[in-house]
Computed example of a mutant assay.
Amino acid sequence: MAKGKVSKDDWTMAALRALARDGVAAVAVDVLARELGVTRGSFYWHFANREALLVAALETWERHGTTEVIATVRGTVDPVARARTLFAEALGDEKIAGLEPALAAQTGHPAVAEVVARVTRARLVFLEEVCVGLGFGPRDARHRALAAYAAYLGWLELRRTAPESAPEAQFQDPGAAAALDHLVDMVLAPIGADTTPE
């Protein structure tokens, strides 16, 4: 990357990659400047300090991983297709591998805790909306939203920590689509329904 051509977005994405690798402590201006091939001085064109970079990075994650996904999926009219599209989008190819579990592990930092809490609320509300659209009552929709979100977080953790034991959790695995379909069927099936494939 040429000097002087580094944008604010380049800095925030570098910060998110650092967060995914080693947590909040890894968001170090000097280290990121070396990674981007620029001087430390270029950082100050975009941010007042390291905390401002961290907040901007977290807001970028929130926008790309939640706000934009919800807006896209909400446009799907058919309720079943909407639910499947949401899971496919959420558990598809990660732009930054391991970022979600890394952020969940860093909620001791106030800025991370605030954004993770806001993202979790928004995602659960949307999952409830999706479940209500499928005909579930408010209480059941809430419970299914919680189960779906727990499954999502667990799926990402399996992807990160157990790629050999659970290869189907990997986006590029040949069995990933079938495993994801089964997960969606389990979460969305009526209570007592048999979700065993024929």
Rank of each mutant, 00 (worst) to 15 (best):
K5R: 15
A20P: 00
A151M: 07
D173E: 06
V6M: 03
A189E: 02
E51Q: 11
F136P: 00
K5L: 15
R144N: 00
A111N: 04
P197M: 09
P79N: 12
W61A: 11
P167W: 04
M186F: 15
A33I: 06
A15M: 04
H64N: 09
R139F: 12
R40P: 05
I191Q: 10
A148Q: 01
V116C: 11
G37I: 15
E100Q: 15
P138D: 13
V24R: 01
A56H: 04
Y149L: 10
G133L: 10
A150W: 09
G108T: 04
E198L: 14
F47A: 09
L156D: 00
A57F: 00
A166L: 08
V116Y: 05
T72A: 14
D173Y: 02
A71C: 13
L158Q: 12
E59F: 00
A97Q: 07
E157K: 12
M186R: 15
A105S: 12
E51N: 11
Q106W: 01
A179E: 07
A25P: 02
G41R: 13
G192C: 09
R50V: 03
T107D: 04
L156T: 06
N49C: 04
A117T: 13
V116D: 05
A48G: 14
D181C: 07
A150D: 14
I96Y: 05
P101W: 11
D185C: 03
A57T: 04
G108H: 07
V38G: 00
V69R: 07
L127K: 00
A20S: 09
L19I: 08
L36H: 08
E59D: 14
A102F: 04
G37F: 11
A25T: 15
L146R: 12
G75P: 05
A169L: 10
F126V: 02
W11C: 00
M186P: 06
V24G: 00
A141V: 08
A141T: 02
P138G: 02
L91M: 06
E62T: 03
K95R: 15
L153S: 04
H182Q: 15
A83C: 10
M13D: 12
E89P: 01
A147K: 01
V77A: 15
H64K: 12
A71I: 11
P197N: 11
E35T: 15
G108F: 09
G92I: 03
A18K: 02
A189L: 03
D9L: 15
A102D: 04
E59C: 03
A56Y: 07
V27G: 02
V27M: 07
G133N: 05
R50F: 01
D22V: 01
F136G: 03
Y152W: 15
T67A: 12
A104E: 13
G108S: 12
D194M: 10
N49G: 03
A177T: 13
L127C: 10
H182P: 04
A14I: 08
G98E: 02
K8E: 14
A177K: 14
H109F: 05
A122V: 07
G98L: 08
E59H: 13
P167N: 08
P138H: 11
L32A: 12
F171E: 10
R159D: 00
V38H: 00
Q172A: 14
F43P: 01
